[in-house]
């Protein structure tokens, strides 16, 4: 049976990827952020999964205006890196795991999650930046296959935090029921507090972010009970992305151990964080 070995929560700010792509990680602006990643990266490098299930949102690249799914899952053998308007990131394409994807779709649809399936998907910074946070120097190819799980966070109404947590619980069970010896890591991406547009642009709420970083480990139900309006008020219109961390948390078992975390302001217009949890098993 497949096993979930760790869960990573991380911001997916485009400029974090750009800093790596353009060799700026040692610049004074970026060094504190990347220094903070160090211990997590070293720990993960010793524990390469076979597949990473990456929960992320598309940012007006592969998902357009015509058809916006609430939840989606990639089912392809391969995913190209999206051109988001400024050329493709110089990182490897992403290899899929169509067998695991098909298993997850079957289990999740039967559990009452109304997923959209993507046989074709160009993955944007929401997915590739977390891969770079995990593995800064992939060389010719990423160290593991990937199953993308998409959450609509840019069109209102988004799924509730409670629904995201429920999806995570079902996703974890579905992964663990895959009848193959396989090590799986789960990524929850986006956040922390930020708002790009409007008079509240530039909003950072470190108190809320610190609370969230703590509670995601020990009290996910509390975070799942927050409303859409709570997230907007406290974390900003784009801080809403934090609901994707709850999908990751839901997929992990109840027994987890925090390996490392880091919090930094700012990465562009965003509070950026990383939190890494070892899954001790026995859900």
């Amino acid at each position: 049976m497949a096993e979930i070995i760790w869960g990573l929560a991380t911001s997916h700010v485009p400029s974090i990827g750009a800093a790596m792509d353009h060799g700026k990680t040692a610049d004074p602006y970026w060094k504190p952020l990347f220094d903070g990643y160090g211990p997590a990266r070293a720990w993960m490098a010793e524990r390469t999964p076979d597949v990473a299930v990456i929960i992320y949102n598309d940012h007006a690249n592969a998902v357009g205006l015509d058809l916006v799914p609430t939840f989606g899952i990639g089912t392809a053998a391969s995913y190209e890196v999206a051109d988001e308007g400024w050329g493709r990131r110089p990182v490897p394409h992403v290899t899929g795991s169509p067998e695991l994807s098909a298993h997850l779709v079957g289990e999740l649809v039967d559990a009452g999650f109304d997923l959209a399936t993507f046989h074709r998907l160009d993955v944007d910074h929401g997915l590739t930046v977390p891969l770079s946070v995990y593995c800064p120097d992939p060389g010719e190819s990423w160290p593991c296959a990937v199953v993308p799980v998409l959450v609509n966070v840019i069109q209102y109404p988004q799924p509730t935090a409670a629904r995201c947590y429920a999806l995570g619980r079902a996703l974890g069970a579905a992964i663990r029921s895959f009848p193959r010896d396989m090590k799986v890591a789960v990524f929850g991406t986006g956040g922390m507090s930020h708002q790009l547009a409007g008079a509240r642009a530039g909003l950072i709420n470190s108190a809320f972010d610190r609370m969230f970083l703590q509670s995601i480990e020990s009290e996910p139900e509390k975070l799942a009970a927050l409303t859409r309006e709570d997230y907007i008020r406290e974390a900003g219109t784009e801080g809403m992305e934090l609901i994707m961390w709850l999908v990751m948390r839901g997929a992990l078992s109840d027994r987890i151990a925090r390996v490392h975390d880091t919090y930094h302001v700012p990465a562009s217009n965003t509070a950026a964080a990383l939190a890494l949890f070892e899954d001790l098993g026995g859900s």
Partner: peptide, 9 residues
């Protein structure tokens, strides 16, 4: 600018 822009339907 308004405080928030909610990208609703």
């Amino acid at each position: 600018a308004r405080d928030n822009y909610l990208n609703d339907l």
